Simulated assay, not measured.
Amino acid sequence: MGNLIRVLTRDLDSSGCNFFLDFEHAQPSEAERATFEKVKQVLEEGQEILEELQMYKGAGEEIRQAIQRPTVERLQQRAWAAVLPLVTKLHTFYDFSQKLESALCLLLDVFACAEAPPTQQLEQKQALAQQFAHILHFTLRFDELKMTTPAIQNDFSYYRRTISRMKINKLTGESQNEVDNELANRMSLFYACSTPMLKTLSDATDRFVSENPDVPLENTTDCLRTMASVCKVMLETPEYRSRFSSEETVLFCLRVMVGVIILFDHVHPHGAFIKTSNIDIKGCIRLLKEQSPNSVEGLLNALRYTTKHLNDETTPKQIKNMLQPN
């Protein structure tokens, strides 16, 4: 995903710090290995999830014919047969969101519960920092694909209408539905969100903070703030950016930067957009807007619609204006 990158950033105590953040070759120490292996399994499954989502075609034609000719039983059965395996996939995606949440909490526990400052944490535990970045990269990539695949909600809406009608008519069929009404309700809420994976991680970070009152909130927010700064410096410094092997590495860093900003905005009492957050939001937005619009529109939308504090009165008007849709 990326080359060995030398990162120049500044810690929260304003002391300079040089270190390498390796997105490709970082290896875990023995102390990190147990956590690393658990998260690795989730990330590997995540690649399969993305491949499945990229190939998702939907059952639009079968559904359209079934709706247009509701009395033709053959068309109803054909649509039902087409939708069932797709709902199974959607169920798999939903279940994976819970695994991703658990993986994120494992890493937050490592970084937020440590006594060392966040820059030192990232430098010394690069393999886990790499995994944290890949979780965010997966999350933003999944949500980008989901937003450009309207068939997902169309298929699931048809499924829910059909099982409701089957229940009313007491026609349960020969096989049991894998997704019952209770699960279907939870999945419906998940897919109704424009960025479901990002909301899952935001909610998980909120819960991590609330369920660990003995861990100072600053530990979590400082970690997120530092990761955002690291990504920004990598992107805006020609010396470092020239080492990227491809534009995909640029997108990787952009997704991670946006992801940690959103998580920060959800857990910090006053959010990421105020000056005292110590995140250069204006610089981050400018970086996004310097890229090809087609590649970053989903990331800009994530900042517009999935952050918690953008519309607060304390958010500078310039930032709100910068994030206005064109």
Score class of each variant (00 low, 15 high):
13 D>Q: 15
20 F>L: 09
20 F>P: 03
21 L>A: 07
21 L>G: 05
30 E>R: 13
32 E>L: 07
33 R>C: 14
35 T>D: 01
36 F>S: 06
43 L>S: 11
51 E>T: 03
51 E>A: 10
55 M>Y: 06
57 K>P: 01
58 G>V: 08
62 E>Q: 14
63 I>Y: 02
65 Q>M: 15
65 Q>E: 15
66 A>Q: 12
67 I>D: 04
68 Q>V: 05
69 R>A: 04
69 R>F: 05
81 A>H: 12
84 L>Q: 10
85 P>G: 09
92 T>H: 05
95 D>E: 14
111 F>R: 06
111 F>E: 08
112 A>V: 14
118 P>M: 02
120 Q>R: 10
124 Q>G: 08
138 F>D: 06
144 E>A: 05
146 K>I: 00
149 T>E: 00
149 T>C: 09
151 A>R: 07
155 D>M: 00
157 S>P: 03
161 R>D: 14
162 T>I: 04
164 S>R: 15
169 N>D: 08
171 L>E: 15
176 Q>A: 10
183 L>Q: 08
185 N>L: 07
191 Y>S: 02
191 Y>H: 07
194 S>A: 09
196 P>G: 03
201 L>A: 01
202 S>G: 10
206 D>N: 09
213 P>R: 12
223 C>P: 04
227 M>R: 12
228 A>K: 04
229 S>L: 09
230 V>F: 01
230 V>M: 02
231 C>W: 00
234 M>F: 02
239 E>Q: 10
240 Y>M: 14
243 R>L: 15
245 S>Q: 09
259 G>F: 07
262 I>S: 03
275 K>V: 13
277 S>Y: 02
284 C>E: 12
290 E>Q: 14
298 G>D: 12
299 L>V: 11
301 N>K: 08
311 N>H: 13
314 T>K: 11
315 T>W: 07
322 M>L: 15
322 M>H: 02
322 M>A: 15
